[in-house]
Design a protein around this nucleic acid. Structure first.
Lengths: 344, 344
DNA sequence: CTGTTAGCGCATTCAA
DNA sequence: TTGAATGCGCTAACAG
């Protein structure tokens, strides 16, 4: 004699609201009420129902719930690279803002794969998520527009630029690089290099522009080197070349923290002291930057703020879908000065 | 005149299968068939339906789908700390295995908060996920048992130990620390220290045991120090104390990579050369470990493997819920030797 | 306050 | 091969 049989309900599958209602001796609507509007239910019935729920191990079926209610409290965040702590910061910011707003945040990692990105967007679209957040690849946003066309709110986080069709939050990359460059100049550098990543990345181009602006304003020479990637080995290779060239450089602005780590390693290999002979600054404040042997100065502080703002924009659109006007919020990053640039 | 009006359907909300059927001039069942069993539908009708789907921008409603079908292809992974690249590795492994199995993997970050962990488990439970993966807090697993009791498959990843009630995959922490310690001894260290994290963590205790085992076998003295945390500042502080004490230590086994980074920093501060005078090994192969100025040797390789295996176990249970026998798979980590321990 | 009921959008019989 | 009908579990509106 199975437990389910004793309880007089079908054996397989989880208990339903109807099972709960039967066991509590009330109608199904009442069960729904104690779950969703407990104030409408008398103390006594509520207790009966709660007892039945506990006894049966009843768990709401959110599919049925969403279907009937026509809405959901889930928001999806699709991220390019969960291995990059910058995006983890975004996720954290989004998570805490969502929690505060009573929304459930689910993550999906596209892992720099456009097809996966599209797949996860479609997943959340099919699940009728309340809204979507997308930290996109630097690639066409067709899939995001599709979601948008289906009437689902979506906001871009760390977007490559403003977008007329949807809300987005961006960080001012030009400003960031400018701040970084000015910082090196203030620290007494006289001959700078900008270690770019691949120029096909919009962010890289903006940062380059910012660095050039700052260098021009201060009339400090700026050598530009384009590395193959934003990773450490590329930074190391590029720096090795730069530092063994005849022209002397006493400060390098990098496009990423791993690059900066690579640069510092190259410097150490060549017996060039950091920050004494060479100041190095990274970008994005990845988690490891603070813990290095030579803590790496960097530009950061934008990640979690962007996540929060993105949720805020999303909420606005969810709350007022018709009156809503798309807009772009630009976050200003800040300097995080650590030892790798401390020259005075 | 709105687009919806022209199309002769209600304005708000996404198109439904009924809308598609109407526009294509077929019955709703046929639309369902072209979506789920296209081989049962004639070329011509299928084309009509597909045209209507495209024209309407129709997107399946997975809530309705799951409700009607009574199953879902989503699996949820709840992770303690998405900021730790070890768990990112697990997520990556789980993701690729899921993709291969035709399952959709969604992530949730409990952020070392038991309440959040329970919340996300409940979320996936309510969504009737096909199964759950949990990289748990080192804390009671009540919420996981609940899920289990509701008949939903769940497997523990990086579990604190074997569990009779559910499948789990663990890494052999004792072995890992043993390997690490043996490595230092092979490299010629004569006096070791084990930098433990808080001993309330099971993993820390196991690692301690492994280190002691290796040290005993080789008759090498092992000083044990308990740091406040697994983070860099704790490692730095503990190492500073250790390295300024009268007793000489020429090798330190750490419980984490950040700790190792802290140790190396302390050594550099004290003008002790690494690896020359002091060999240091970390644990978990966090992403940054390879890129440091002094690349950090470590114990790793288990993360993505654990993720894959966990999905595999989950699949077994999903496929055969009744015949399934819970089991624990133990993954063996491996040494990743880098410069911080290269003494010969 | 509680019970009844009509869908929500879809998968899936069963007939035709 | 296609169409009509039933129900998945729940919410919300309404009647009592």
């Amino acid at each position: 004699m199975t437990k389910a049989f004793e309880e007089g309900r079908k054996a397989d599958g989880p208990a339903s609201m109807q099972d709960v209602a039967d066991r509590a001796g009330v109608a199904i609507g009442t069960v729904s009420n104690v779950l969703n509007r407990p104030d409408l239910v008398s103390e006594r019935t509520r207790h009966k129902v709660e007892t039945a729920i506990a006894a049966l191990g009843f768990v709401r079926n959110s599919s049925a719930r969403n279907l009937a209610a026509g809405s959901s409290d889930m928001v999806g965040l699709v991220v390019v690279d969960i291995g990059n702590s910058f995006f983890v910061d975004i996720a954290r910011g989004a998570e805490s803002a969502s929690e505060q707003a009573g929304l459930k945040l689910l993550l999906a990692n596209s892992d720099v794969d456009l097809r996966r990105q599209a797949g996860y967007l479609a997943l959340f679209d099919e699940a009728r998520a309340a809204g979507l957040l997308l930290a996109p690849l630097d690639a066409p946003l067709e899939a995001a527009y599709d979601v948008q066309d289906h009437g689902r709110p979506i906001v871009l986080v760390n977007a490559p630029g403003p977008d007329k069709r949807m809300c987005s939050v961006t960080v001012d990359d030009e400003l960031g690089a400018q701040i970084a460059t000015e910082h090196l100049i203030e620290q007494g550098c006289h001959s700078l290099a900008f270690l770019a990543g691949p120029l096909e990345f919009r962010a890289v181009r903006h940062r380059l522009a910012g660095a050039q602006k700052a260098a021009n304003q201060a009339s400090v020479p700026l050598t530009v080197v384009e590395a193959d990637s934003l990773k450490a080995p590329s930074g190391r290779a590029a720096a090795h070349e730069l530092l063994t060239a005849p022209a002397v450089v006493d400060g390098i602005v990098c496009c990423s923290d791993p690059q900066a780590a690579g640069v510092i390693r190259a410097a150490v290999d060549l017996d060039i002291s950091v920050p004494g002979e060479l100041a190095v600054i990274g970008y994005d404040d990845n988690h490891f930057a603070a813990d290095s042997v030579i803590p790496v100065s960097t530009i950061g502080g934008a990640g979690s703020r962007m996540g929060e703002l993105a949720v805020q924009l999303l909420l606005e659109e969810i709350t007022d879908p018709v009156g809503h006007q798309h807009r772009t919020v630009i976050v200003e990053p800040r300097l995080i000065a650590r030892r790798s640039t401390r020259r005075r």
